[in-house]
Amino acid sequence: MRRPKKPCPITEAGIRFVDYKDDRLLARFITDYGKILPSRLSGVDARHQRQLSKAVKKARFLALLPYVKGQQG
């Protein structure tokens, strides 16, 4: 039995290329600890997941997203 495929939330939002400056969008695809959510949980398609991965890493460098959440220092 296969579960029906979830539609990709990024495609649905009409986004062609994921923007690393859009921290509100990126925050939807990280876990409570700040890790990148696997596409099997988020339903993001492979192309957007690759873009997302790079965007999250850029956003972390720019202190828009934390490297590790829920930890001081």
Binding site: A13, G14, I15, R16, F17, V18, D19, Y20, K21, D22, K58, F61, L62, A63
Partner: peptide
């Protein structure tokens, strides 16, 4: 404090509707 230079290869985000 910090800076980042990146090449704009594609239009980012959603296109203007």
């Amino acid at each position: 404090v910090r800076y980042m230079v990146s090449l704009v290869e594609r239009v980012l985000g959603a296109p203007k509707l």
